[in-house]
């Protein structure tokens, strides 16, 4: 019984949150890795693009809620998501036209584009705060839980409850669909293959008649979809606050680099590695250990390795370790 309780407690407080957080990071890291692979720079504006996509989706959600339009048990945000993606796509392609294209035509070195993306980040950051303000916003509605702690206790007869939030279930399912679609697109379609070809060798892609501007446009479209989905899922799961999204940049980059920059599979793996480390290191293990260890050994403290305030330190340390010992990442990406 104690073992079962321990497993349930572990699932409830570590595995479920880490899987959903990992999915959100994976979606974010996929976007980062795509831009790195195809446009050849690290996009520092990624977190704020997520914030922008989430913001537009929230505005549409409020509008739909005001009209009384809901999806029943599912959050209304799902209905607003396509609109959020569309507006974000317009923003990204607009930014590319106004800013990035100039540097592409100059054949600017990628490091210059990194700094350019830093500028874009500040602008987007400002736009989001200007429109929706710097405060927390709630926009989740519909059923709160798929499995609630009380129902689980009644059903299983255990002391520990297991709760799975709708947003967590939704996050995992949406991520699986998004990743499957992305892989199918990159490996099976003509446009996807041309994007991989451009990523591999720009000049030869040009000599094969692949239009670079097309490839760049498709990349931004996919990135718009990935960032908006990731941003909205994160907002549903926790809450929406522009500054949190800016901070997400670190775990997202850590995920992408840990997995191996430029490798989509690595981005996903990296997302889960970072999420699981963050959650396990900041989790107070007292409860789980209390079930597992004999009474005499029951820990008196919380057995929390790091306060949650330091969770970003975890991704930073993992990033450092990977860059020191396996700079190409788990899946042999491009970083050296």
């Amino acid at each position: 019984m104690d073992l079962l309780n321990a497993i349930v407690a572990l699932t409830n407080f570590v595995i479920v949150p880490a899987v959903s957080y990992g999915s959100q990071l994976a979606l974010g890291a996929l976007g980062v890795t795509l831009i790195y692979g195809i446009l050849r720079f690290s996009n520092f504006a990624h977190g704020d693009t997520m914030a922008f996509g989430a913001m537009v989706t929230i505005l549409f959600t409020w509008w739909f809620q005001g009209m009384g339009l809901t999806l029943g048990p599912l959050p209304t945000a799902l209905l607003a998501l396509p609109f959020g993606i569309a507006v974000t796509a317009l923003l990204l392609i607009g930014t590319d036209r106004v800013v990035y294209r100039f540097y592409r035509e100059q054949k600017a070195k990628p490091v210059i584009l990194v700094i350019v993306s830093l500028g874009v980040m500040f602008i987007m950051n400002g736009i989001v705060r200007f429109i929706i303000g710097p405060d927390d916003q709630q926009f989740a509605d519909g059923a709160r839980f798929i499995v609630s702690a009380r129902d689980f206790k009644e059903w299983s007869g255990l002391d520990e409850g297991l709760a799975i939030k709708t947003s967590q279930g939704l996050t995992v399912i949406t991520t699986i669909i998004a990743v499957a679609l992305l892989f199918w697109f990159l490996n099976r379609t003509r446009t996807g293959k041309s994007m991989r070809a451009y990523s591999d060798n720009e000049d030869l892609a040009l000599l094969s008649g692949i239009n670079p501007e097309r490839v760049v446009m498709y990349t931004w479209l996919i990135v718009a979809a990935l960032t908006t989905v990731a941003g909205v899922l994160y907002g549903l799961d926790k809450s929406f606050k522009p500054f949190t999204y800016f901070q997400l940049l670190l775990p997202i980059f850590a995920s992408a680099i840990v997995g191996g920059l430029g490798s989509p599979l690595g981005a996903i793996a990296g997302g889960f590695v970072i999420a699981f480390s963050e959650v396990t290191i900041t989790y107070a293990w007292k409860k789980v250990l209390g079930y597992l260890l004999p009474d005499a050994l029951e820990p008196s403290g919380l057995v929390q390795l790091l306060s949650t305030d330091y969770k970003f330190a975890v991704s930073f340390v993992i990033l450092l370790i990977v860059l020191l010992f396996r700079p190409t990442g788990l899946f042999r990406g491009k970083s050296v």
Binding site: G37, R40, F41, K107, K109, P110, V111, I112, E202, P327
Partner: peptide
Amino acid sequence: GNPYQDDRGNKDASITKRHGVGEIPYR
């Protein structure tokens, strides 16, 4: 002499990807 093509010795592959960068000038 194009200043945009000067990376000032930055070879950090964790923020930029040099592999496959195009050299055919834009025309």
